[in-house]
Nucleic acid binder design. Sequence first.
DNA 1: ACTGATACCGTACAAGATGTTCGGTATCGG
DNA 2: CCGATACCGAACATCTTGTACGGTATCAGT
Lengths: 187, 187
Amino acid sequence: MDRRQRKTRDAIFDAFTRLLGRHAYNQITVQQIIDEADIGRATFYSHFETKDYLLRDLCEELFGHIIDTAMGLPHGHYHCTYGSADDSVFLHLLRHLQENDRNILSLLASQNNEMFLRYFKTNLKKLVKTQFADTGKLRESHLPEDFLVNHISASFVETVSWWLGRGMKETPEELTEYFEGIIAPLI
Amino acid sequence: MDRRQRKTRDAIFDAFTRLLGRHAYNQITVQQIIDEADIGRATFYSHFETKDYLLRDLCEELFGHIIDTAMGLPHGHYHCTYGSADDSVFLHLLRHLQENDRNILSLLASQNNEMFLRYFKTNLKKLVKTQFADTGKLRESHLPEDFLVNHISASFVETVSWWLGRGMKETPEELTEYFEGIIAPLI
DNA sequence: ACTGATACCGTACAAGATGTTCGGTATCGG
DNA sequence: CCGATACCGAACATCTTGTACGGTATCAGT
């Protein structure tokens, strides 16, 4: 990809991220993004059709990257016992989040975090499905597999959101214990 | 309240609900709402400052009503056993939802359901807190009470969302069993 | 039935956002 | 070095927003 394109694209993403930290998504105008990114008007529209597409592309880059990284990890490394969860995928995800790559935390904690949490959950479901469905663990339950996959994904996202909303007081290890305390009884 | 005011307010709510079934929230303009409700421009702005306030008021009426109704029920009627859940607050809520009062289901199943699910969850937390915190059941857990209240509320909302997204194939009784299968091990 | 209050209408308006077009300039990859 | 192209900046018609106004119809209370 052309270096100019990359620079412009990143400038837009950065400006958008900064604005999302200050204003609600609905209140942000394309004009503000253009001003904050310091680019020409036509340039923005040559990159993104609308504000919504910009959001979509940003989320796909962010969560696609995080989930794909976790997808590369070996499967089935999930332990129900509380102490030995060092190789839990969820702990790995939390540590990755804590690095705050591309300010992903500020987005997940912003006023409009629902949008990002939804994208997060959508991508996470794929991961949960491959992690658990393959092992067959979920089939032992009396609950529908699809229901459980959805519940586990949503609960993790909700746990992260709870964590961020209260200032990330817990360590990733503690939070993983909380989360496993919730879903371990199910599988 | 003046009869004229009530009629206008309802007309706006109805128009807004109809539009939300057809378009995404961001795409809906005040002008569209005005046209759909068939009212004067100034009239809309004398009722609601912005589109966001309209959404807020609509949600407060809808979920405030549902939760307040459930709040009136006797507390602590929650049973962990699977069969005897006839008086569960959650079953009561599901049945109330199924009546589809003011098209609340079409809103919870619309493209922008996150917004409504958030309002739903916010109100539900109050209910969960009074239902469980008083009984002291949650304190027996090794997990923080606030974390559990949040998890239970979020899980119920997520269960309802899952139910709607797949066409409400299950009965309220079946769905209550699913839900209790998820949270019963925790309390 | 009468009356003052007020909610509504219709129109108009300024300010700003949106999405597109165009020619000129600077930077890119090869 | 050169052709391709990404950027700029300005201009543009169109739409949305929020407010203001006087006139009309409906309301609640006596």
